[in-house]
Amino acid sequence: MRYTEEHEWLRVDGDVVVVGITEHAAEQLGDVVFVELPEIEAMVAKGDEVCVIESVKAASDILAPVDGEIVEVNEALVDTPALVNEDPQGDAWFFKMKIDDLSVLDDFMSEDEYKDFLG
């Protein structure tokens, strides 16, 4: 598992990257009440806003961590946004991306580095 400074996690699953938000991010957001997912087959660039998350407190975005193509989205989050709070690093993944070069993931933080980042 790799981590971004935007509190997203990235996990390689075969030839795709699965993206979600960290437990820390889910806790900071509070109870999630709405999730909007990207279109499948959308080509996205690193930093694009690809998902919207609304909690009881505020709206926030998930940014594409790398360039690539969205190949699958987790429709369960649309019907049950609370999954994001219940299992942020498991069942509540947001989308899967196909990317050209999986080695770009090495640029992101490891679990230990992310823990240090959180302080």
Binding site: G30, D31, V33, V56, K57, N85
Partner: peptide
């Protein structure tokens, strides 16, 4: 603004 229970459960 909230306690550990969280806004939804507090409500």
């Amino acid at each position: 603004v909230q306690y550990p229970m969280g806004v939804m459960k507090e409500h």
